[in-house]
Simulated assay, not measured.
Amino acid sequence: MAEAEVLAAVRQFSQSKMGDDETGHGFDHIQRVVGLAERLVQAYPAADRVLTVTAAYLHDVIDEKLVTDTAQASEEVRYFLKQQGFTADQIETIFLIMDNMSYHKTLDGTAKPLPLEGQLVQDADRLDAIGAIGISRAIYFGGHFGEKIYDPAVQPRTAMTHAEYRNLNNETIINHFYEKLLTLKDLMNTAAAKQLAEHRQQVMLDFLSEYKAEWNAEA
């Protein structure tokens, strides 16, 4: 099967799985991550473009916070990839990326080293979590789960475990910026992503400064 046909099938599969998401991880997010991954892969021609784009399309399809039965979701993805002609080694690489790129993996130290393709997808995913888009997604996600927007008396959590990170009862939307989003710039794998992250980081810092000034009726 031709590369374009394979990626078209992967795109359709991803859209069928993520099209109804209401947490900020919908197919619009997927498309942006793919676009960013495509942009990054141009700077790193050693990366396999098909594996990079495929992993970008599928990176949230088996995510524990979005899928009730991750084992079943994984089996569906494996079967689908096999049907598209991916080899066993390619499928394992794609799953290595999907299983080890999430932020929570950095909290418990269980993440395995990512190949270059995985580093590009991880960078693309993290870039979409910051900046103006990141701000809107954080608010959208927190609102979906009924999080409090802001409480100056509640301090951002530090040195979180995986379980604490997933406990939204102890988080506010604004604190999420300090607990995670503002840390992502320094976690980028590639120089190209680090450069893109600089501006997006400043957008968030400016937002937080303005938000707190308005909260305190100073602006």
Score class of each variant (00 low, 15 high):
Leu168Phe: 08
Glu214Asn: 06
Val67Thr: 12
Ser209Gly: 04
Gln12Val: 12
Thr54Asp: 07
Lys212Val: 07
Asp20Arg: 13
Leu96His: 14
His104Ile: 14
Tyr44Met: 11
Gln195Arg: 09
Val53Trp: 02
Phe145His: 14
Ile135Gln: 05
Ala55Lys: 05
Lys194Asn: 05
Leu184Gln: 01
Leu181Gly: 00
Thr93Ile: 14
Gly26Gln: 05
Leu205Arg: 10
Tyr103Met: 05
Lys65Gln: 07
Leu81Asn: 12
Lys180Ala: 00
Phe13His: 13
Ala138Arg: 08
Glu75Gly: 12
Asp99Gln: 14
His144Cys: 04
Phe27Ala: 00
Tyr150Glu: 10
Asn100His: 12
Gln195Ser: 04
Thr172His: 03
Leu184Pro: 00
Gln195Glu: 10
Met188Cys: 03
Ala9Phe: 09
Gly134Trp: 03
Ser136Pro: 00
Val50Met: 10
Arg32Trp: 02
His199Gly: 00
His162Met: 08
Thr52Tyr: 06
Asp151Arg: 14
Gly143Leu: 06
Gln84Gly: 13
Asp123Trp: 08
Asp60Tyr: 02
Thr158Ala: 13
His199Cys: 00
Thr158Val: 15
Met1Phe: 11
Phe86Trp: 11
Val77Pro: 04
Gln42Ser: 12
Ala217Ile: 11
Asn170Gln: 14
Tyr150Ser: 11
Asp99Lys: 14
Glu38Phe: 05
Ala71Leu: 07
Pro115Asn: 05
Phe145Leu: 09
Lys148Asn: 12
Tyr150Phe: 11
Tyr178Pro: 00
Ala43His: 15
Leu116Tyr: 03
Thr183Val: 00
Pro45Ser: 13
Asp21Asn: 10
Val33Gln: 07
Ser209His: 09
Asp125Pro: 00
Met1Pro: 12
Arg78Cys: 05
Gly134Gln: 03
Val61Trp: 01
Gly143Ile: 05
Ala2Gln: 15
Ala4Thr: 15
Ile30Arg: 06
Leu114Asp: 11
Lys17Val: 04
Val203Met: 02
Phe141Thr: 07
Asp151Gly: 09
Arg32Val: 03
Pro113Gly: 12
Pro156Trp: 10
Thr23Cys: 00
Ser16Leu: 07
Arg157His: 11
Lys212Pro: 00
Leu182Met: 04
Pro152Gln: 10
Phe207His: 03
Ser136Ala: 06
Thr93Ala: 11
Ala138Lys: 08
Ala47Ile: 10
His176Ser: 04
Thr110Ser: 13
Asn189Thr: 05
Gln155Tyr: 09
Ile135Leu: 05
Met204Pro: 01
Ala163Glu: 14
Leu120Asp: 09
Gln84Arg: 15
Leu127Glu: 07
Gly146Pro: 02
